[in-house]
């Protein structure tokens, strides 16, 4: 069977990919994609710990985390739309304020 350390390493690599995206992307939706990758890595850890430790608390926590991420995406995308309306673009390094 797969040792737990492999899965944790995979999640760490996924998380760092997300960090790279957040640090380099100039596009607001590109940033959100990076945040999604990081959240996904965290969920993998929750489920992996739950599966290896035997209880189901980790999976319950993963469901909560998924719901929180979805809420975050909804608010994030509406902010992106607001940014687009204020600046006619979604490049975050050009935008200094959400209003005019």
């Amino acid at each position: 069977m797969t040792p737990l350390a492999y899965i944790l390493l995979l999640a760490a690599a996924l998380f760092c990919t997300g960090v790279y995206a957040v640090l380099t992307r100039t596009n607001a939706i590109g940033l959100l994609l990076g945040v999604e990758l990081m959240a996904n890595a965290v969920n993998i850890n929750f489920v992996a710990f739950s599966s290896y430790a035997g209880g189901h608390a980790g999976q319950v926590f993963a469901v909560f985390a998924i719901a929180l991420t979805v809420a975050e995406v909804v608010v994030g995308l509406s902010l992106v739309i607001l940014l687009y309306r204020a600046h006619k673009g979604i490049r975050v390094d050009e935008a200094r304020a959400l209003s005019h």
Partner: peptide, 19 residues
Amino acid sequence: NDSNPKRRPLALATSLGLF
């Protein structure tokens, strides 16, 4: 979906260091 080329080396170093 550009990424800023000036930020790329530092971002790569940060994420690799974190990993």
